[in-house]
Amino acid sequence: MNTVVVTGGTGYVGRHAVEELHARGVAVVAVDIVSPQERGFSFSPGIDFRRCDLRIPAETRAALRGADAILHLGADIGSLTYMHEHQADILTNNAAIDAALYPAAKEQGIPWIIYSSSSMVFQHPPQFPYREEDIARIHPPTNVYGFAKLIGEYFCRAYAAEHGLSYTILRYHNIYGPGENSKGATPGDIHVIPALIQKVLNGQYPLELLGNPEATRSFTYIDDAINFTADIVLRALKKDESVRNQDFNIGNDTFITILELALMIWKECGDGRPFRYKEVGTKSDTALRREVDITKIKKLGWRQNISLQEGLASVVSWMRAHQEKSI
């Protein structure tokens, strides 16, 4: 049985990836600095957890032992407020994580890393919708998290060129779904969908929209993203040349403005009053447009199984139940 180490394994995307790979018959080791219990959940029986600070090389070497591949989701990321106020921490910590992980993988002969990048690397794309090959023509992102993720992509390519390490880069676009925490460094500003839903459920009126309401985004339901991620990991374990040293933009080719999203959420869970909003400025340095071409992943079988409308209804239902339980 193949063994996959999932870094960031108790995070939102990580814990879903761990469970999906386990369900598909892979031996999975979840690695994180925070335990499942500290995050309020437990893994299914048979899933191994190793606590590790990935910035520390000795801990990283121990955590990766026995792996046939690494799904590298671990990163220092936070809310819009966090990204603005902790720019040095984000750069330092993410660089330290990669600087410990890639040498450890090389030393232990782990042949393949599936690296979680981000749509934020495309802060300044040369065209819309942007394609994978446009990464060679972008201006580096000024958002520090996007820049840190771009550095991670360079780690992949550098270790492939010098040491023969195989990689696959996955650039996730605005993953959302039930179970995501709506609170960041300040309440309700970590990810836009749970943040807006929480504001509506709390009775905020008019609804406050951070940043430019005309900004466009491509949203990806968690189950769709995880199914495709697991497909990629299994291809990597089989040494599939179609994903070796390749990068993939994971998202949907239906784009929506933040204002349109807010209106959809208001219709789903608002209190019946006419929709009203007000703009609230943010110091965060983010892209105005995120519009992605997904031709490449469609060739590998990508399908959007959950529409945005269905996904929002699912998140609203979960958050209402969660809110009721917390009263």
Rank of each mutant, 00 (worst) to 15 (best):
Asn2Glu: 10
Val4Ser: 08
His22Lys: 11
Val31Thr: 03
Ser35Phe: 01
Arg39Gly: 13
Phe41Met: 10
Phe41Gly: 11
Gly46Val: 07
Arg55Thr: 15
Ala58Asn: 08
Ala63Met: 09
Asp76Gln: 09
Tyr82Arg: 08
Tyr82Gly: 00
Met83Leu: 13
Met83Pro: 00
His84Asp: 06
Ala88Asp: 02
Ile90Gln: 08
Ile90His: 00
Leu91Tyr: 13
Asn94Ile: 00
Ala96Cys: 09
Tyr102Ser: 08
Ile114Gly: 05
Tyr115Trp: 10
Tyr115Asp: 13
Ser116Thr: 14
Ser119Trp: 06
Phe122Met: 15
Arg131His: 07
Asp134Thr: 08
Ala136Val: 07
Ala136Gln: 10
Arg137Asp: 13
Val144Met: 14
Arg157Gly: 07
Glu162Ala: 14
Leu165Trp: 10
Arg171Ala: 00
Tyr172Asp: 04
His173Ser: 06
Asn174Thr: 14
Ile175Lys: 00
Pro178Ser: 12
Gly179His: 06
Asn181Val: 02
Asn181Lys: 14
His191Pro: 09
Asn202Glu: 14
Gln204Asn: 13
Glu208Pro: 15
Gly211Val: 03
Pro213Ile: 13
Glu214Arg: 14
Thr216Cys: 04
Thr216Asn: 06
Ala225Trp: 12
Ile226Asn: 00
Thr229Ser: 15
Ile232Gln: 15
Arg235Ile: 05
Asp240Glu: 06
Asn245Met: 12
Asp247Thr: 05
Asp253Val: 09
Phe255Asp: 04
Ala262Met: 05
Met264Leu: 15
Met264Gln: 15
Met264Phe: 12
Trp266Ser: 03
Gly270Leu: 03
Gly272Trp: 04
Arg276Lys: 15
Tyr277Ala: 09
Glu279Pro: 05
Gly281Thr: 09
Ser284Tyr: 10
Leu288Ala: 12
Leu288Thr: 06
Val292Thr: 09
Val292Gly: 03
Ile294Leu: 05
Arg303Asp: 03
Leu312Asn: 01
Leu312Gln: 02
Val316Arg: 02
Val316Thr: 11
Ser317Ala: 09
Glu324Val: 10
